[in-house]
Every structure is written in structure tokens, then in C-alpha cells.
Design a protein around this nucleic acid. Sequence first.
DNA 1: TGCTCGGTTGTTGTGTACAACACCACGGCG
DNA 2: CGCCGTGGTGTTGTACACAACAACCGAGCA
Lengths: 227, 227
Amino acid sequence: MSMVREPDERKASAARARFDRLYATLRDRICLLEYPPGTRLSEEALAEEFGVSRTPLRRVLGWLESQGLLKSVHGVGTIVTDVDIEELTQVYQLRMELAELLGKLSPIMPDAKTLAQFHDIHKRSFDLVAHPDARTFARLNMDFFQLHLSLTGNEPLREISERLYIQTSRIWLKLTSAKELPEEIAYFSREIADILAAVEIGDLEAAGFIRRSHISMSFTRLKKLSK
Amino acid sequence: MSMVREPDERKASAARARFDRLYATLRDRICLLEYPPGTRLSEEALAEEFGVSRTPLRRVLGWLESQGLLKSVHGVGTIVTDVDIEELTQVYQLRMELAELLGKLSPIMPDAKTLAQFHDIHKRSFDLVAHPDARTFARLNMDFFQLHLSLTGNEPLREISERLYIQTSRIWLKLTSAKELPEEIAYFSREIADILAAVEIGDLEAAGFIRRSHISMSFTRLKKLSK
DNA sequence: TGCTCGGTTGTTGTGTACAACACCACGGCG
DNA sequence: CGCCGTGGTGTTGTACACAACAACCGAGCA
């Protein structure tokens, strides 16, 4: 996964490189539920783990907080945020619209390498169906999302879509219990196949609609689960 | 204008209140071109001005950087970002789509107070036509935008729209020279009247389309100017 | 004259000690 | 027995000194 802003700064200073590394690490831990919502992080413990002082670490936590993944409270701690079902509904409604826009605004026809990546993801999804695992699923989901984003040349749209995805994917993952996991994985594998078919013939607008419909169905299943 | 996240925390601690104050102040200075793009800010000077040490100030600067308004470079300084015409194009395309969504996703019918605020903005726009002034224009533009956002109940959409607006409105303001100012103010006043008409009869979807068309025309004029 | 190199200055980044704050448990008191 | 206050403990917030870094300038040299 890439950074939110300026992911590929060449000649990045050592300080910035370290910042990016810490940021990506902590963000992934939150997104992959290694730090589930409600977890209280200790600045000092993290600083020690990464071998830095609290100061640069706090800079990273500040960015994560500005993205809505953390919330620091004076005298209490730094807590991984949770999202209630109402806010989740709003984000999903918005993500559906943005998925459609992904196929409309500055679509980028996939080159051979991108297509190969799609096929790779597709293959990995088959392996996942055979051997369901929550964490592998989460990782594949993230990779697929990132790859999907590369189909639009509209950078602000990519940024915003990623932001919303990061805020909510972990909540969806949390609500999906082990019992429904194989079923969800099957749906996901099907989605990849559908989108791959559209991407292969270069119909990115269709891919957007397919993605939209899958987001919609995914959320409908989620609502049924949380009842 | 409101904060990006959690604007109305009740029982906010003194530390958080100070943070919000500094953040809003600096953000407004950047948006109102008090700090034009390219300006190099000094952490120490700002810290002294606000009567705090560099540490809490750096927290504020970090948030502004994560929003894309600043960029800190080690050994050089903290620079107010600029946006090139290409990125501006992408943001405008996206903002047009989002304006349409504002009238579709969870529209909130304006109450009497909100309507009164619209009328107030409308009146202020007339005063502005009579006495054109860049800074007053910028402020009114921001106020109108915020008021417009209150027409949707979709909080993530509000957040994202505000983010894009803050990133680009100052660039548009910068490119609009004094010569075209009265003309732009006239267009703006007209837009307010149009949207007010739609809002008064409760047709928020129409308001979204009107806003979209005005954003489109505004950007077309901007491209003509920058040629 | 033109170029290179090193010092100087100003900036952001980092480490550390301390202050402010919230939670909790324990003891005193009604 | 129940309640309130008070101190202990752990956390984030703040201040400050110093390190790392980049730009600038001017002296020295070819």
C-alpha cells in the first residue's frame, strides 16, 4: 500500500524514510486488526519497539489521528478508533458513488503488467478459497483495492477512496465472524473474476459499476449480520 | 469554519481547545492568501506569536501538512504548498461530481435558521458587488461553502468536500487577478441567488446540479485566464 | 575571472525531563 | 455499610537543548 500523500519521494531523507516506515507499519497493524478498535497504544512502548524516542513517534501518531484511525486523549492514552453502524452506512454509500467515479474520471487502460497483477490477485483468491484465513483475506483485499485504484488517473480521487477504505475495511473485517468467512471469501473471489473480465476488455466504466454493486451487496450482508 | 474531524467536542480540554484555535487560525491564513503558496513559515516565529513552544505548534503544522496545505523539509523550512494546473483540473472534476452527490446522499431539508443564513449570505454578496474586495470575497466564499455543506447529512462527504475545497480555493483565488474580481463576484452572487431559489423550495438535488454547473463554468473561466 | 571548498547561519528533526491530566484503589468518615 | 476524598500510578502534553541538515557566502586557488 502507498502513502496518503507523496508516496514515491525520490531521494527521501533518512528522517522521512523512517517516518514512512513507521506510518505504514502502524497503519497496517490497525487495518489488519492486529490492533483492534478500542486498543490502547502506549507511545513509550511503541517508541521503544522501533528504537526511537517519543517525539518522532508522536508525529506518526498525529498523522494516523488526522486520518481518523487513532484518537489521543490527554492523561488516558492513544486509542484505536471504532466506527458505529450509522457512520459505516454513510461511508459505504459514498464509497459506492466513488467506485462508479473510478471508472469515469480519467480512466487508465491497464498495461500488461497491471493485467498480470490482476491475474495474480485472481489466482491468490483461488488459493484463499481453498484455505480460508482472515488475515490473508484482509491482505488480499487491501492489495486488490490498491490495484483497483491504479485504474484511475485522478489522484485526489485515489487519495480519498483510499482514505475511506482504510477507515472502514477493518470494521467490516471485524464484523465478519469466522463462520461467514468462507462465504465472504467466495463472494470476493467472484468479484475479482467479474472485474477482471471487465478490465481485460478495457471497459473500466463497467468495472466501476461491478465494484459498486459488490460494495452494495457486501454492505447488505453486513447489515443482516449485525442485526 | 469547522475542524476536519470532531469539530464540536464538548468539554474539550484546554490543550485541545488551543490546538483547534491554532489550527483554524493558520488554516484560514493559508486559505485567505495571508500566507500565499510558496511562503516559508518559521516554527519559532509562529510559536512566539502564539505564546507556546515549538512542540504543540509542530503538532498543528503536522495536521496542516497531512491535509496537503504545508510541506516541511528538513533544514529548509515549512512551505505553503502550491497546486499546478493539472492537479487543479483533477480536483475540479472530482468536486463537480461531489457537488452533485451533496444533493443526493442524505439531503437535509434546511430549517428556518439555515434559510436565514442563506439569505444573509445572499445579502452580503450584494454588498460585495457594490464594494469588491478580494479578502471579503474569499471569506464569503468560504462561509457559503460551509453553509452549502450543511445540506447533506453524510458526514464523510462533508469532510472530503471540505478537504478538496480547502486545497484548491486558495489557488483559484490566487489566479483571479484584480481585473477579473468584479466579474467573478458578479458570477458568485448569481450562483448564490440560483442556489437559494432551489433551496427555498427544498429541491436540494437541483441545488447540487446548479452548484456543479457553476463549478464547471468557474473552472472554464480559470483555464482561459491561465492561458 | 571562474570554480571549489569550507565555514556560517538558519531551519526542521530528535531526545529528554517535567507538567497536566485521568483513572483507580485505598482509607477515613458519616 | 456506603460514600467521599485523596494519593498513587500511568498516560499524553509541553518546554527546551541539541543534533542533523541545507542554503548561502566568501575566501582561496587555478
